[in-house]
Simulated assay, not measured.
Amino acid sequence: MNRVNSIRVETGAWVCFDHPDFKGQQYILEKGEYPEFQRWNAHNDHMGSCKPIKMHGEQYRMELFEEPNFTGQCVELCDDCPFLQSTGISQNCLNSVKVYGDGAWVMYEEPNYRGRMYILERGNYGSFMEWQAENPNIQSIRKVVNYF
């Protein structure tokens, strides 16, 4: 089955992809009902793979770097950020990220949590390609809130 028109998530948070093998555009699905594909920010009804987002607790922290390999200007986040440039990052570009703590994050290409999204779990991402982005443009970030 690769076409999906409605989803109900009863527990946890999931990252879904529009291609098999966890490739392609990412979508986050948290607890709730999604009666049509537009509700989870999809452009069509294709869904090729899904997996649960690893959540270890409630501690959220990440470091954002303007340059690859954790260089350049750095900003630390512990909470949602609807417009990344308000934190002091001078560009719309994030080229590397370190995710600490227990929680996962969603990064968006547009302000106010809109546009293409990328889900990052605990770990180090030395390049935007490591979170499967086509470019380093990120303008908003929010925590994944897991409701078990």
Rank of each mutant, 00 (worst) to 15 (best):
W14Y: 12
V15C: 07
V15Q: 09
C16P: 05
F17Q: 08
D18K: 03
D18T: 05
D18Q: 03
H19T: 10
P20C: 04
F22I: 05
Q25N: 14
Q25F: 06
Y27W: 07
L29P: 00
E30Q: 00
P35W: 00
R39Q: 11
N41R: 14
A42V: 08
H43C: 05
H46D: 14
M47I: 15
G48V: 09
S49M: 02
C50G: 02
C50E: 05
C50N: 04
P52V: 05
K54G: 05
R61K: 12
R61N: 07
M62C: 07
M62T: 09
E63L: 06
F65E: 04
E67H: 11
N69S: 03
G72F: 09
Q73D: 10
Q73C: 02
C74Q: 00
E76R: 08
L77G: 00
D80P: 09
D80G: 02
C81A: 11
L84G: 12
Q85M: 15
S86F: 01
S86M: 11
G88Q: 07
G88D: 04
G88K: 03
I89G: 11
I89P: 12
S90A: 14
Q91M: 13
Q91F: 08
N92M: 13
N92T: 03
C93D: 14
C93H: 15
L94K: 05
L94S: 12
N95K: 15
N95T: 12
V97A: 09
V97G: 03
G101V: 12
D102H: 11
A104T: 01
W105P: 11
V106P: 11
E109V: 15
E109K: 14
E109N: 15
E110G: 05
E110K: 14
P111Y: 14
P111I: 11
P111K: 13
R114N: 13
G115A: 06
M117Y: 08
Y118C: 02
I119P: 03
L120F: 08
E121N: 10
E121D: 04
E121I: 08
R122N: 05
Y125M: 04
